[in-house]
Amino acid sequence: MQRNIPDGPRPTDIYFFATCLVDLFCPEAGMDAIQILEREGIRVHFPENQTCCGQPAYTSGYADEARLVAAKQLDLFPEDWPVVVPSGSCAGMMFHHYPKLFAEDPVRKAQADALSGRVFELTEFLLKVLKVQFKDAGQPTKVTLHTSCSARREMGTHLHARELLGQLSGVEVLMQSHESECCGFGGTFSVRQPEISAAMAGDKADALKKTGAEVFLSADGGCLMNINGTLEKRRDSFRGQHLASFIWERTGKNNGGQA
């Protein structure tokens, strides 16, 4: 699905929806994303009552349970500010699936539609709304990129990360084979079909490593946990990093960043 992003004045305030995975398993990625946004002069609001987008229940066929959780998130964003999400699949849930989830509830449906229009995946927001121009402050390096399936197919944002990395003069982005193929996470799929999931994750880890990159990057917490967990189990030192952390480090953290 392609998104229409209207040209308008640069927003001054945004809501940050961290996602439950980032909150609990990779908080530094959330922190780095917030700091990048703040460095761009944005006031970042973190609604304290946020929990989870409800996706695990929704994709498992438990729509009622997903609705209970999702309804709570719909109430978190009273101001008409953009909602920025550092994960393609959770952004996809809010953008793509919330309107369907509440199709039979006119009040919630209106809320879901309104929210859907202002939910942005982090890379999309940086590139298309803020139109950032990063300045590289690191040593030359080679990286490779894994884009989550939701980012690619639900948010249509798979090119944004690549474009952002293209702004970093010392970073060479290497292509892996079967680039668009799923890493095999799939939420509960990874525990329901562990053998197939392991085969997919193993192939993805192989393909990423084979590029010869120093690190692989992804803007999705689920894929990172899956591929990194697989590499660690193999006692392989190759690792993935959240794109936000990589950018924050490469652009000199608080010291610079803007071209």
Partner: peptide
Amino acid sequence: KQAGWTDSRTPLKPAAKSLRDLL
């Protein structure tokens, strides 16, 4: 050991501090 997950991956372990803690 986490059913299914740890057959081919290391266990999922929460961070020492959550994003809320850090903020």
